[in-house]
Design a protein around this nucleic acid. Structure first.
Lengths: 226, 226
DNA sequence: TTAATAGTGTCTTTCAGACAGTATGGA
DNA sequence: TCCATACTGTCTGAAAGACACTATTAA
């Protein structure tokens, strides 16, 4: 007995907060197999779901490990952020992509930068000016749009994601947290309003009793992780 | 060249507002193929995604037409409400279910009741006391839970879905609309608060200048569709 | 009249938005 | 000193919650 051979794939959209130019970036890698479509183009990392994976989460873990040589420390949710399937997006046939937005840790960033060097690329998640493989331009735009809408709908979700994007940094200021938040919701927030959101008691952040240095202005309180 | 043979399926969770006992119900059908797993059990309607479907939306339409002999008038969203995939949920192998919540029209309800008669069943979406095929008990519980959370997060979403659930009825009162809303968010709302939500100008509802009759109380204004 | 449900008025609390004011460092 | 950024105080207006009040029918 045989079943329809639809191709089921995972695509991972690893996002990362780049403090140095205050942008949310996406990790892209160059497709390096001449026997696969879009050879030499940049793309989201991804792959087929295999029978031996056993379940979707295992497939995600395997792909993350194979493609960026690291575990991903946080999943946006158990459900994919985007599912799209048709016969035109992949020349190999009817392919369903399950796109998961994941947050990268700093270690992953460093590993990828060095070992994968010229085959990887970080680009502004909200402004991709590059032709990607498959329909990945469209996937990214749709997924980032959904991320913004979700974050606008629930400040708690925005807040949680902002914290996860800052996790790679040992220390951060509330102004930096606000910057990440503003990138997620794609709008400026009043400083006082933002600080009212902060549920000091609940969240895993910790006032370090340290201040920033070498700024030409009043130093900011530094926060870290419990 | 061959690709991994993961089974990709669609499951539809058709919901319907039953005015007579004020419940949101799910349409279930009895599995009638002795060669398929869970023969004679009740289940959500669903099926394999086939290569000739071309895309996911077409697969959904085909399955709806095959299984309940009708088009579905409204999709919750382009994305599935739930995706779950592993090797244990289907004896035939690694199966990924893409679950879509859909709202049934009255015509579908009537068609299904008559032609499918004893092979279909309507049950309270929030209280399934019946062992269903596959992991469908779990799917339904998770999907209804997500529906409630989504509706609590956005009153506009709750409102839109409530209106869609009332679409099959030509006339309805604001109290009825509130009842549907309360089922969706799973909590009682103050009458005045609820009426303040109603954006008279925006929504496709219309005051009919008619009132309910034969009630032992003050008659209610009837509303209909533009 | 009463029972029952429809619908409204309004007080109170909460909270976002706006923005001025104060604090604290470097140059 | 001033400039820049961090942080706080507080007024205002919008909207939710609570709940009492009025309205309109049948029995």
């Amino acid at each position: 007995m045989s079943y329809p051979s639809i191709i089921s794939t995972i695509d991972l959209m690893p996002i990362y907060y780049d403090k140095s130019d205050n942008k949310i970036k996406i990790f892209l890698s160059k497709r390096n197999n001449p026997n696969e479509p879009f050879f030499d183009s940049f793309a989201l990392i991804g792959g087929f779901i295999r029978d031996e994976d056993g379940d979707i989460e295992s497939a995600i873990k395997r792909i993350a490990r194979d493609k960026i040589d690291a575990d991903l420390n946080w999943f946006n949710s158990a459900n994919p952020d985007l599912v799209i399937g048709n016969k035109i997006r992949d020349p190999r046939g009817f392919a369903i992509s399950h796109l998961y937005t994941v947050v990268m840790g700093l270690d992953i960033y460093i590993n990828s930068s060095s070992s994968l060097n010229k085959n990887s690329l970080y680009v502004d998640a909200f402004d991709i000016n590059l032709d990607l493989a498959f329909d990945h331009n469209h996937l990214i735009q749709t997924a980032m749009n959904k991320l913004t809408l979700d974050c606008r709908l629930s400040y708690l979700k925005a807040f949680t994601i902002a914290l996860n994007l800052l996790k790679p940094y040992q220390e951060f200021t509330l102004s930096e947290l606000q910057s990440v938040y503003e990138l997620l919701v794609q709008e400026k927030i009043d400083k006082k309003t933002f600080r009212r959101y902060i549920p000091y008691e609940i969240d895993p952040i910790l006032r370090l009793n340290k201040k920033t240095v070498n700024k030409h202005a009043r130093p900011a309180e530094l926060y870290g992780w419990k």
